[in-house]
Design a protein around this nucleic acid. Structure first.
Lengths: 242, 242
DNA sequence: CGCCGTGTTGACCAGTTTCAAGATTGGTGG
DNA sequence: CCACCAATCTTGAAACTGGTCAACACGGCG
């Protein structure tokens, strides 16, 4: 199958390595119909700003709010005692997070760059879900999509080489942001974030990027910006073992 | 934190490497209260038997049923074109799977050993969920738990060494099955299954198991059975980098 | 009893990490 | 506006973990 096809392959058996980043499919708010639900939801929310680098909440903190990204990029991660970190998701405008966490947060959320968020009190959200079956349904769809994304990420971490990981990351990012061939792609997260997302070290991420640059597959005007010159060449790298 | 503690650490910041296997927490059926929901659900199901090794469904197959494991062990996996495989979950009695798949299945399900399953038609299930808010709610909880499990698995695949992976697998398996120190632990899956679950090769899994055996931390009466002699020593291996 | 699938072990190899040295970038204050 | 400093990024060389290839052991089944 080609990487340009959807997550569920047509041949019925093989999966591409792409799509690790939080799926662009089901949103809550931009969807057609059910505006009443969206409006009821929005009434519960408070707009807040978070400067880049600031922690929104940490693992084990009481989960009092759910959030929606309005602008900016959020990083969700888990830590182990000795400092190792696994970034589980990058979130972009329109994405919800922490809406199914009760009691304690199971992960850390931090601002990759300056953020605007909507914060929803968990209790009010719970009430809304109980009152409106559609809202409950839509959140269920959102979590289900999250499982699919996590599974795609598992494939990357379990079975992809460093080159495949980086290539699939770039493809997913460009599709998530909606950038075409030869347009400049914003890369809000640091090399360390990317490394921790892909289960690699900073150095390996750098080396692969340099290699792609030498092969004229990407340009790197600066660390926070990329130009994907040959997306198809990237995609080949994801399909095969190169 | 100690591995014996829950998934959400008390110190608020570090996560253990254990708990990669489908969580033992929320079940649907064995829970107290809501028996009416459970009974309504059960009326929709058909008991089916699947011999070991047989595929239940493959990636891309139309998703006509959801399933509940009655007895035996199910393996869920994703494949990439060149044959690489990532096992995303092992399921045990009481576990549901594929109840949020519409259209096509996003993964392959196979019988690790001889199975008894309950099969639920998706349409009837959908209807039940719409009629009974509690059922919807409980499925939502189930999917949310699945996300937590997948995240724990991501940490293992992204950041754990081979020894840590195998040790955390053994601990999770023993906790999932409910086996104490020095009791014989059934290991229904093959070395290849374990390797594909942990993102390793068969050989590495074997070597780590042999090493644990030499260190008198486990016994291996035969490939399908293990005795965990020193679970605390295993847990140390998961905490640290050993 | 022998065969075949699975598991185990060893020797060697490759990809990734580690350690270390510079290069760039961005932010701050003069 | 520029200079400086700290943080981030890049690159190189060496070490190491885990993978690959290959031989052999084990065990169940015909």
């Amino acid at each position: 199958m080609s990487l340009s096809e959807a997550c569920h392959p047509t041949n019925g058996f093989s999966t591409s390595l792409a799509w690790p980043i939080a799926g662009g499919k089901p949103r809550f708010g931009s969807s057609v119909g059910g505006d009443a639900d969206v409006q009821a939801l929005n009434r519960l929310g408070t707009k807040i700003r978070v400067p880049h680098g600031r922690m929104i909440f940490g693992e084990g903190d009481p989960a009092e709010h759910a959030y929606k990204v309005v602008s900016g990029c959020v990083r969700l991660s888990r830590h182990i005692s000795d400092g190792r970190r696994q970034v589980t998701q990058f979130l972009f405008p329109g994405d919800f997070f922490s809406f199914m966490e009760f009691g304690e947060h199971s992960f850390t959320a931090e601002a990759v760059n300056d953020l605007v968020l909507m914060a929803f009190p968990q209790k009010a959200l719970l009430k809304l879900r109980n009152e409106r079956a559609n809202v409950q349904e839509r959140f269920l769809t959102l979590v289900a999509q999250r499982v699919l994304d996590a599974h795609a990420h598992l494939v990357i971490l379990g079975r992809a080489t460093a080159k495949e990981r980086v290539a699939s990351f770039l493809i997913s990012l460009s599709e998530r942001i909606g950038v075409e061939d030869d347009e400049i792609l914003d890369v809000p997260m640091s090399r360390l974030d990317i490394a921790d997302y892909l289960g690699l070290t900073i150095e390996t991420v750098c080396r692969v990027l340099s290699e792609l640059k030498r092969a004229r597959i990407i340009d790197i005007p600066d660390p926070r910006h990329l130009v994907l010159r040959k997306i198809d060449a990237l995609q080949e790298r994801v399909e095969m073992n190169v």
